[in-house]
Simulated scan of single mutants.
Amino acid sequence: MKGLLILLCLLITPITQAGTYRWVDENGQTHFGDRPPVNTASDEVTLKSAAPSSDAAARERKQRMNEFLEQTERERTERNEAKARQEAQAAKHEARCQALRARLKYLKSVSGIYRLNSEGERVFVDDEENERIRQEFRARVQSECDA
């Protein structure tokens, strides 16, 4: 959009040239160019550019175009911010799932699971409790990461 605005500004501004030359060839035809011809007499002419239109309709169109460009830019910014938030949330979720899967892998590799009692000592759970903890953790990983 900014490129379009720059292009419009370039087209609106008056054209400045180093010089415009007029000459008549041997057939009597008049020619114009930005460089004087070789071996032919020429006159440098001044081109007058049209004054830019400053009527109310043109100002209104320009105002609407500026509002449209600003709105488009705001919408693009909002989309980019929403996308960045979504990507950050997805990355956070993936990191959490990797940690849960690593812990599940660890639970599968250890022979016994323990809890700490009130004195901070390890108290190993029985095989039935061991299997129940593993199944619960496996279900947690599936519900949080594999859905």
Results as ranks from 00 to 15, higher is better:
residue 40 T to I: 15
residue 7 L to H: 00
residue 74 R to M: 14
residue 15 I to M: 07
residue 89 Q to F: 03
residue 36 P to W: 05
residue 77 T to P: 01
residue 57 A to Y: 06
residue 56 A to C: 12
residue 73 E to F: 11
residue 54 S to K: 15
residue 35 R to K: 15
residue 50 A to M: 14
residue 28 G to Y: 08
residue 28 G to V: 12
residue 112 G to P: 01
residue 108 K to C: 02
residue 24 V to T: 15
residue 53 S to H: 10
residue 116 L to S: 03
residue 91 A to P: 00
residue 88 A to Q: 08
residue 38 V to W: 03
residue 73 E to D: 07
residue 2 K to W: 00
residue 96 R to W: 02
residue 92 K to T: 08
residue 51 A to P: 07
residue 81 E to L: 12
residue 61 R to L: 05
residue 130 N to S: 04
residue 131 E to Y: 05
residue 81 E to T: 04
residue 123 V to A: 01
residue 137 F to K: 09
residue 90 A to V: 03
residue 124 F to T: 03
residue 94 E to Q: 10
residue 34 D to T: 14
residue 40 T to M: 15
residue 68 F to C: 11
residue 123 V to R: 04
residue 27 N to S: 14
residue 126 D to V: 09
residue 134 R to D: 06
residue 12 I to L: 12
residue 86 Q to G: 02
residue 82 A to M: 06
residue 125 V to S: 01
residue 45 V to L: 10
residue 64 R to T: 05
residue 102 A to V: 00
residue 59 R to H: 14
residue 123 V to W: 01
residue 99 A to L: 10
residue 10 L to A: 04
residue 14 P to A: 01
residue 98 Q to M: 06
residue 75 E to I: 14
residue 93 H to C: 01
residue 5 L to I: 09
residue 113 I to N: 00
residue 120 G to V: 11
residue 98 Q to R: 11
residue 87 E to Q: 13
residue 108 K to Q: 15
residue 102 A to S: 12
residue 34 D to M: 13
residue 134 R to E: 07
residue 45 V to Q: 09
residue 34 D to W: 05
residue 25 D to S: 09
residue 13 T to R: 10
residue 126 D to I: 06
residue 13 T to M: 10
residue 71 Q to M: 12
residue 60 E to H: 09
residue 40 T to C: 08
residue 27 N to C: 05
residue 33 G to N: 11
residue 146 D to P: 03
residue 4 L to F: 06
residue 58 A to L: 14
residue 58 A to I: 12
residue 125 V to K: 03
residue 144 E to A: 11
residue 116 L to D: 00
residue 13 T to W: 05
residue 47 L to H: 13
residue 97 C to M: 02
residue 77 T to I: 15
residue 52 P to G: 06
residue 127 D to T: 12
residue 112 G to S: 13
residue 34 D to I: 12
residue 108 K to F: 05
residue 6 I to A: 09
residue 85 R to Q: 12
residue 76 R to I: 10
residue 62 K to Q: 09
residue 6 I to H: 03
residue 66 N to T: 06
residue 25 D to G: 09
residue 44 E to W: 07
residue 93 H to I: 01
residue 20 T to S: 07
residue 97 C to P: 02
residue 2 K to P: 00
residue 11 L to E: 04
residue 66 N to D: 09
residue 72 T to V: 08
residue 127 D to H: 09
residue 131 E to F: 10
residue 3 G to V: 05
residue 31 H to P: 04
residue 73 E to H: 09
residue 53 S to Q: 13
residue 41 A to K: 15
residue 30 T to C: 10
residue 52 P to T: 11
residue 79 R to M: 11
residue 99 A to P: 00
residue 80 N to F: 06
residue 14 P to S: 05
residue 131 E to I: 14
residue 102 A to K: 12
residue 48 K to Y: 14
